[in-house]
């Protein structure tokens, strides 16, 4: 009996100490880990969209509460003025959600660029949304409003051949981003001005 109590006590104490110290470490590294993930996972997409900027958009970011979720916005500074902002969106593709990074020019509300970040589309078919620069380049320079659709649905974007579902997903993601932007536009512009 005595031995059994000892076993339970030792295991419990050990687990508690372990859990406690890991929670402490996690809390202390959380910010650094978030930064690293931004830098290596989302960073390349952000940097390819926000061209000609003089700051580091991964450091110059802010968050806005949108209903229940918090959205991150990455600011691009040109000539000492916060001119661009990039943020994430997603649309339903063929194999799951297609994650997008969308850059907007704050001065004229036009799309600066769209990049696919994460996806689980078919390699060689839907995955071309990420690898074929011509597809996402269609969005660049278009006004960031209204609704985006593929040409087969009466829209303005030529779908990737054989990957209409993925192309629709990307269009839906951009359209969703437009709604977010319209909803939060004033807050975005106000907060972006803080970065120079």
């Amino acid at each position: 009996m005595n031995e059994m109590v000892k076993m339970v006590v030792v295991l419990t104490i050990l687990s508690c100490v372990s859990g406690g110290s890991l929670a402490f470490l996690r809390q202390n590294t959380a910010q650094q880990i978030e930064y690293q993930q931004l830098k290596f996972v989302k960073g390349p997409a952000i940097m390819s969209i926000l061209k000609g900027i003089s700051n580091n958009p991964i450091e110059d970011r802010f968050k806005i509460k949108d209903g229940d979720i918090e959205r991150s916005f990455y600011v691009g500074v040109v000539d000492g003025q916060a001119k661009y902002v990039a943020f994430e969106s997603s649309g339903g593709g063929f194999g799951g959600p297609v994650g997008l990074m969308i850059g907007v020019d704050l001065t004229n509300d036009k799309i600066l660029g769209v990049g696919v970040t994460t996806h689980s589309e078919t390699p060689g078919v839907g995955a071309r949304a990420k690898t074929d620069p011509d597809f996402v380049a269609q969005f660049s320079g278009l006004p960031f409003k209204g609704q985006f659709k593929v040409t087969a649905d009466g829209g303005q974007i030529d779908a990737l051949s054989g990957a209409t579902v993925t192309s629709r997903g990307v269009c839906a993601g951009v359209t969703a981003a437009i709604k977010v932007y319209e909803r939060l536009k004033d807050q975005i512009k106000e907060k972006a001005q803080a970065f120079k």
Binding site: L22, L25, R26, T29, Q36, Q37, F40
Partner: peptide
């Protein structure tokens, strides 16, 4: 887990 967290934070 300590190694995993530290590596994520400093050697991603």
């Amino acid at each position: 887990t300590v190694v995993e967290l530290l590596m994520q934070a400093y050697a991603y």
